[in-house]
Design a protein around this nucleic acid. Structure first.
Ligand code: DCP
Ligand code: MG
Ligand code: MG
Length: 653
DNA sequence: ATCCTCCCCTAC
DNA sequence: TAAGGTAGGGGAGGAT
């Protein structure tokens, strides 16, 4: 049921109860709350052992969602089963195939129709999010019983540093025996308490532990030693098996450097890799293919959040601007709720971004994921930096609307929306909001920038030049459906879940080399030729024609109402006629400004509350689409010197 | 150089 | 039917 049919706001909250990706995506936040109940979890970094020895465990549940659900259905255990929202013949997305299903080539992210082709009679079980949460918690408790040095990655996966438990053991054989005992105890504890299997990899770094886990699965464990044989193993592994090298990266490596294995990559110089992938990514790849992992240990796996966001790009259908606004409002309310549940509770956002999935004009409905998928879209984002913080849903909504206006999208073309908050800082007008309800008209004191333009003009300058050619802004699809057929050999072994000892040599698990059934490209194109051209080394040039973001320098008004705009603009940052709050944060580089506010003990007084920069207030915002039809914006004409429907707007001069 | 915005990729 | 989210790293290209 689309958002239009269900009602925009209801749709938002309901969607989140059903989405597995939302469940996964918000898991760390819930994990952070769980940690607060585990006194042992507050720990710093583990120290290296004697002789620089280090032992890291990577623990990952096997076919997690499926394992949880199959506990109660033992008769299905050895049959091919997936977890998905599918019933019968529907085309849902596969979340988690069990290992028997994987033997048929069924993969997470695959659509059910494809999965059924590969595996006739495939059984699907629906999501049971509460159970996953329960099992995840039990698993984590077992992990923290082993060591406080736990780095949580996801609901079914974490790294443990056990150097302090085994590193002191001088004799190597003894040390390895101790590791084996520890790992087996942990695996046994998890299985006894959850009836689900975890596999474990051991290595001197997170990277090596993770590579070991991949070889250990399912239901096994393994050590990845970087001895001669380990080096040979690594050299023979496809680059796709390295973390951070995904489907595109692997393909790019082949196309640009002729590299397929880690060994191939090892033979390339740092400079050459960097030439194609940039300094940082190049350096990372250069290291990873050698088994070198410099990632710092993150205690508990919890880093300070930089952004909090909400987005939905499924089932989004709207016909009027009002519907768009209502949907956005739903997202903003969800966002505020999530912020309040996070460690950023009580803070406000100094940056707000939106994401828009805009249907391509020529989108082919056959490439949609069911009737409610977003189909072929251009995905556009816009950001605004505020001088002050936004804390309430109405404030977020206000800015989200303005950002959306810049994108000039007809409601009927909207296929998805997102709102996100960043640059968190101490809120600067908390009390103010109490006395000034969102809709209250504001007193304003206007000022004008150098151009001397006035506000009226600004309000029509929202749509940016170039957005109507948005298609050009995005990279074209990468591969056609055919590209998908060249499925790579996978999954040699899947017999009965064997030993609880070192998994056999044959136990190799490859990450998919196949493009996921994914959002950005919709693997839309039927013509392979054009595609191949684009994937050549020059393909980046598809961004060449960008004309993103014309600077929106116009009018500024000062006012003291929390409703009004508060946009940070270069043109006014330092020299415009704006009464600026004296705030040491503003002495810093722009990107540091907002976040450092937090903890700076600036009094949030009446004095500093007053000045807010604004473009205008909200009273007539409905021009966001005047009547829902895009492309008719006076400024589109003014700026482009051309506009499809400039005539339609002559109404306001 | 460094910052900023928008976009791409990756992982679960 | 069907639920294509979320966060972070980082690159390209323009502005400063
Ligand atoms: N594209 C994906 C990837 C993962 N998941 C969910 C279902 C998985 O069960 C869970 C954990 O992801 P893993 O990558 O750990 O995969 P599994 O645990 O399913 O299998 P494995 O045995 O390979 O770890 O996340 C999902 O819904 N969609
Ligand atoms: Mg797993
Ligand atoms: Mg996992």
């Amino acid at each position: 049921m689309s958002s239009h049919e269900r009602g925009q706001k209801e749709f938002v909250s309901h969607f989140y109860t059903q989405s597995r990706l939302h469940f996964i995506g918000t898991w760390k936040e819930r994990y952070a709350r769980l940690l607060e109940t585990l006194p042992d979890s507050v720990h710093g970094e583990p120290a290296p052992g004697p002789g620089g020895r280090r032992y890291v465990l990577h623990v990952d549940m096997d076919a997690f969602f499926a394992s949880v659900s199959l506990r109660d259905r033992p008769e299905l255990m050895d049959k091919p089963v997936v977890i998905s929202a599918a019933s019968d013949t529907s085309n849902a997305e596969v979340s988690c195939p069990n290992y028997p299903a994987r033997a048929f080539g069924v993969r997470a992210g695959m659509w059910m129709t494809k999965a059924r082709e590969l595996c006739p009679g495939l059984i699907s079980i629906n999501y049971e999010f509460e159970k996953y949460t329960e099992v995840a918690e039990i698993m984590y408790r077992a992990l923290y019983e082993t060591t406080p040095f736990v780095n949580g990655v996801s609901c079914d996966e974490a790294y443990l540093d056990i150097t302090h438990l085994v590193g002191e053991i001088a004799d190597e054989a003894e040390r390895e025996a101790a590791i084996a005992r520890l790992v087996q105890n942990l695996r046994t504890a998890i299985f006894e308490r959850t009836s689900c299997h975890a596999s474990v990899g051991v290595g001197a770094s997170m990277l090596l532990a993770r590579l070991a886990t991949a070889k250990a699965k399912p239901n096994g464990w393994r050590i990845f030693q970087m001895d001669e044989s380990g080096k040979a193993t690594l050299a023979s592994m496809p680059v796709r098996d390295l973390p951070q090298v995904g489907w595109k990266g692997a393909r790019e490596l082949v196309a640009k450097l002729g590299v397929e294995t880690c060994g191939d990559l090892q033979r390339k110089s740092l400079e050459e890799i960097q030439r194609h992938f940039g300094p940082k990514r190049g350096k990372t790849m250069y290291n990873l293919c050698r088994g070198i992992d410099n990632r710092p240990w993150v205690p508990n796996g919890i880093k300070e959040r930089q952004t909090i966001g909400t987005q939905i790009s499924w089932g989004v259908r709207m016909e009027t601007t009002k519907e768009v606004i209502t949907f956005l409002e739903g997202l903003c309310e969800e966002l505020v709720e999530r912020i309040s549940r996070s460690e950023k509770a009580g803070l406000g956002a100094k940056r707000i971004s939106i994401t828009l999935w805009k249907a391509k004009p020529d989108a082919n409905p056959n490439h949609r994921k069911g009737s409610l998928g977003h189909g072929e879209c251009n995905i556009l984002q816009r950001t605004v930096a505020l001088h002050h913080t936004a804390t309430s849903a109405p404030e977020f909504l206000h800015h989200a609307r303005k950002l959306l206006e810049r994108l000039d999208c007809a409601p009927t073309d909207v296929r998805g929306l997102g709102v996100s908050a960043s640059s968190f800082a101490r809120p600067d007008r908390v009390l103010h909001d109490f006395f000034a309800p969102p809709s209250a008209p504001s007193k304003r004191i206007r000022s004008v920038n150098d151009d001397g333009k006035d506000e009226g003009l600004l309000k029509r300058s929202k749509v940016e030049k170039g957005v109507n050619e948005g298609a050009r802004l995005q990279k074209e699809g990468d591969h056609d459906a055919e590209g998908n057929k060249e499925v790579v050999a996978e999954e040699e072994r899947h017999g009965p879940n064997v030993d609880d000892v070192q998994a056999s040599e044959a136990s190799t698990r490859h990450r998919s080399l196949v493009e996921p059934e994914q959002t950005r490209d919709e693997r839309a194109k039927i013509s392979t030729q054009a595609d191949e051209g684009l994937s050549s080394p020059t393909s980046k040039s598809s961004r060449g024609g960008d004309k993103p973001h014309e600077r929106n320098d116009a009018v500024i008004a000062l006012l003291n109402d929390s409703q009004d705009d508060d946009v940070m603009r270069d043109s006014i940052g330092d020299d415009a006629k704006v009464v600026e709050i004296e705030d040491d944060a503003f002495a810093k580089p722009r990107h540091e400004r907002a976040s450092v506010d937090e903890g700076s003990n600036i009094e949030v007084g009446k004095e500093t509350n007053g000045e807010v920069i604004s473009l205008d207030d909200d009273d007539d915002d409905d021009e966001y689409d005047n009547n829902g039809d895009d492309s008719d914006n006076p400024m589109a004409f003014a700026r482009n010197g051309r506009s499809k429907d400039a005539l339609a707007l002559s109404h306001q001069e």
